[in-house]
């Protein structure tokens, strides 16, 4: 299987790297336009953003509402997720970036193995497992009075590592990366509670992978399904099922399927696909 890293792939690696770079520079107070990490940050000295799950955990832990400034920061990210879907996962998440980069290596190893007629394991776990993780995080936070997931979140650990050079805890991140060799994206698909929160918020998002019905289903190849990091059955459940778009909060809008599609059926954008107005991947007729 050939892993295609197309326009979307390069773009999302660039945005995620920029985010990680901003965290690294901001943590060392090298730049004035960014300060903070994945749980809460301040951009350009005025835009204060706060992660909805971290905010919820802190509220449950402390048994009090957050100050208005933090609530505004949460509202902004909730609004972004509601409109654009879990774009944090697809375009900014540091763990997502590491897994994305590792996927390229995995793809290469896979090709070598295929020549010898062998395959890497591709185990899956149910998506619903993340609900249990989310429940556990919230339950622990409320009872123990500690923002549970924030203490161990691999997403935070990567951010802290680059901002404050906190090393040892990265073992956990390494674990997530190693897990990926047995079960691709198990973390994102079935465990990450932050991703689940964004998925729930982004269920009705208007930014979607759109399906060009005129081109769809001519010769279904399934590259989209194979390339979806979230393991969505894009071809079977959406393209071949006559859908106009991939309408689910699980889709991180990363554009991997758009890059993978050899026929330009898929594009990332708003509304019904128009060939000339498509945002990415839409080949002009």
């Amino acid at each position: 299987m050939i892993r295609r890293v197309g326009r979307s792939g390069r773009a999302r690696r660039a945005t995620a790297l920029l985010f990680l770079g901003a965290i690294a520079l901001g943590g060392r107070a090298e730049v004035a336009w960014f300060r903070g990490s994945t749980t809460s940050s301040e951009v350009a000295g005025l835009l204060r953003l706060t992660d909805p799950l971290a905010a919820l955990e802190v509220s449950l832990a402390s048994g009090a509402a957050l100050p208005i400034g933090a609530l505004v920061g949460v509202a902004i990210l909730v609004a972004v997720a509601a409109l654009l879907g879990p774009v944090f996962c697809g375009w900014l998440c540091p763990v997502g970036l590491l897994l994305d980069l590792q996927a390229s290596v995995r793809g290469r190893v896979e090709r070598r193995l295929l020549k010898r007629g062998r395959k890497l394991p591709e185990h899956r776990a149910p998506r619903e497992l993340a609900f249990a993780v989310l429940g556990a995080a919230l339950g622990f936070s409320w009872v123990a009075g500690l923002p549970a997931f924030q203490l161990v979140s691999p997403v935070n650990l990567v951010a802290w590592a680059v901002a404050f050079a906190v090393g040892p805890a990265l073992v956990l991140v390494l674990g997530v990366l190693l897990l990926d060799w047995i079960a691709p994206r198990l973390w994102c698909r079935s465990l990450c509670p932050l991703g689940l929160v964004y998925a729930l918020l982004g269920h009705f998002a208007v930014l979607r992978v759109r399906i060009d019905r005129e081109r769809a289903g001519v010769r279904p190849c399934g590259h989209c399904t194979v390339h979806c990091p979230m393991g969505l059955r894009v071809m079977e459940e959406y393209v071949s099922a006559g859908q106009q778009s991939v309408r689910t909060g699980t889709c991180t809008r990363c554009g991997a399927c758009v890059d993978a599609c050899p026929r330009g059926v898929l594009s990332l954008g708003f509304g019904v696909p128009g060939r000339r107005r498509s945002a990415t991947g839409g080949v002009a007729a």
């Binding site: 107070a29 903070g36 749980t39 971290a54 402390s62 933090a70 923002p147 203490l151 935070n156 802290w160």
Partner: peptide, 11 residues
């Protein structure tokens, strides 16, 4: 309980 672990005070 109240610290969100963002490290902004550190920076």
């Amino acid at each position: 309980a109240a610290c969100i672990r963002c490290g902004q005070c550190v920076s």
